[in-house]
Design a protein around this nucleic acid. Sequence first.
DNA 1: GAGTGGCTAGTAAGCGCTTACTACGCGCAC
DNA 2: GTGCGCGTAGTAAGCGCTTACTAGCCACTC
Lengths: 407, 407
Amino acid sequence: MAVTLADVAARAGVSSATVSRVLSGNYPVAGATRSRVLRAVDELEYVVNGPASSLAAASSDLLGILVNDIADPFFGIIAGAVQGELEGRTDGPGPRKLAVVCNTGGSPERELTYLTLLQRQRAAAIVLTGGAVEDPQHSAALTTRLRRLAAGGTRIVLCGRPPLDEPAAATGTGARQPGPPPSGPELSGPPPSGPVSSAKPRSAAGDRGPLSAAHDGTRGGVLTVAFDNYGGARELTEHLLALGHRHIGYVAGPAERTTTRHRLEGHRAALAAHGGVTADRAEQLTVHGGGYDRSCGYQGARELLRRAPGTTAVLAANDTVALGVCAALREMGLRVPQDVSVAGFDDLPFSVDTSPALTTVRLPLQEAGARAGQLALGTLAPPPSGIVTVRHELRLRASTAPPRTGG
Amino acid sequence: MAVTLADVAARAGVSSATVSRVLSGNYPVAGATRSRVLRAVDELEYVVNGPASSLAAASSDLLGILVNDIADPFFGIIAGAVQGELEGRTDGPGPRKLAVVCNTGGSPERELTYLTLLQRQRAAAIVLTGGAVEDPQHSAALTTRLRRLAAGGTRIVLCGRPPLDEPAAATGTGARQPGPPPSGPELSGPPPSGPVSSAKPRSAAGDRGPLSAAHDGTRGGVLTVAFDNYGGARELTEHLLALGHRHIGYVAGPAERTTTRHRLEGHRAALAAHGGVTADRAEQLTVHGGGYDRSCGYQGARELLRRAPGTTAVLAANDTVALGVCAALREMGLRVPQDVSVAGFDDLPFSVDTSPALTTVRLPLQEAGARAGQLALGTLAPPPSGIVTVRHELRLRASTAPPRTGG
DNA sequence: GAGTGGCTAGTAAGCGCTTACTACGCGCAC
DNA sequence: GTGCGCGTAGTAAGCGCTTACTAGCCACTC
């Protein structure tokens, strides 16, 4: 049924080895022979058998991308950018590598399951995007898993989640570590090595054998493209404080996610630095949602305003959540920003078009995805630290304004 | 380095055939043996070699999904739903099949390229989502290609694009065929077979040999989950007409897409049926954008209002475009809906939260994706026609209202 | 007590491709 | 003229898994 290499070889009057060489182009073949082969390929409409090829060559041209929610543009943009990089590398006619996008739904089990599936396919690289779940047991399992994959030659890139050695991921205790006070939002700054996890108990699961030195970068060869969620949130809160707000609510994402934690910690840090708000009060003004979607924002805002009717500003876990917050406020008869200011995070495409336009923190998702793709492909040499940090940027728009009364 | 079947077999004291059987579970193995094998698998952390397995079994567990824009929630939702179906089939621990999401960016060439890539991987099924490009040459090439893949045993499902036999896809002439006047928006109506392409020139490319009867369904085994873009747009326009609007602008999507054409034709049909608007006028009030994104809506609205300042309502190609339209109107000092009514299409999650909330046509993307996934997996028996049509539903919200003056 | 059939498990032949190794032919230097 | 080396192309040994076929074992039956 299917046309094989041998068929093409017969038609071109050469051996199958020659055909293989022509197609992979990694061996000198005389011009005449080459074109004869190519013609035969064309005439027979031959399409390489990927599995056979992967088996023989012990490698595949699959690249896995794990996302928490494929319907969320946040991930769509990143995934699209990663794929864009695959196309750049046109080793022949069109892209050679294929991206496998896996929707984990934020579930640790599925994350692990997909990792296995990808490993089974012998994926050449895997990019894990978005916040990680902070369950210590899962973190340990995941870390071990990723390290082993990396040691086995699979390129692993984390995009938008903390590097593997980050305290919360490598520590066995259940206690939450303080957020990372990044040295700055700059591109590929030096690793914040110093104060990080001094008493690190070498991860819970048995670390069998010395993880052979992987391609490059430290941290067992697991590369990272990091967002400065902490810094972004802090700046955003500082903006609100500067406007005069003192009753700032926070509708956070799911409690056990790194992204949630870092943003929240940045927020709290700004509050603490300013001094006008007690930790207790800040705690009271924080509501955790079950996800990063619109309805969480809606419910979160209602809960928040019930707890603290005097709230004059609401920070949302991200732009989508902010949308829900706005809807709830509007429904309660509160105007944005006259009665309550609202700010999001991420600066998704729609955020500039909401009314009022949303104040938010722009994360260069496109760029982050591209970088992650390059790291995964080996196109971009990773910095010594193995960590590339991308810039964020405050986007001040119409949804935030000074509070009506002085605060 | 890698653990193989043989290693597991040795450890369990059985032959590799037995291990294979335990893992695939398609052959009786004594309980004791099975558990011994399973333990060995566990201890060795064995992960099947997918390529080898696919090669030997002449099948793979990859399912391809082609989308026009992965950053667009429209596609994200569909893709997510398709993947959801894969997980349902837990033949073992977790999902067995893997979804490969390919971002074509709406480019015909890339569509073909990805098809080749998927064919190379011997994907078990391929789902093509979203509107198709109507270039006759490309259509012919695509049709031939899909038919051949289907004949070769790959399940092909079109989701949100017309069935293969639809006039514009099978005709060699450049002339645009009239839009499909669907019998109704009901689930799996009979195929509108009759009047379709009588003088069909058997497609441009050489149709070698009789396409062997594929699994099921007509149309060469290519299944379809269809949206009634035509009907939805017509109803939406009827709604506007009923409100009293007579100057209805249309900011359409890219001209050469089936989705664009069908929606536009539905719109025009409503106008024609109503009688109050001439075809010329309708033509004048139509602006084509270069894509389905926000900026196209923004520019389109500006262009439209320049051409026809008296416009009292604007229909957008989809919700995202509608967002851009609203932004442009707002910028021009026009209020929605007091000065100009705006309506979208698709009913994406954010549409209920815009302000004003967007009137639109709800497309059950989730359901469509799920059905497409089921068809691709063979879980859902396709109707005789091979076409499943999903319901749409008008969502009347705050962005549409009667025009200020009587029209 | 030999025959029969139902379970299990092993044997081994590929699946289609890659690639180390080998073979051939020809020009050039000695 | 012989030898060497380079540029090409063929040979064939796997890659790790699936599966048809075969074989052993045991409980029954006639």
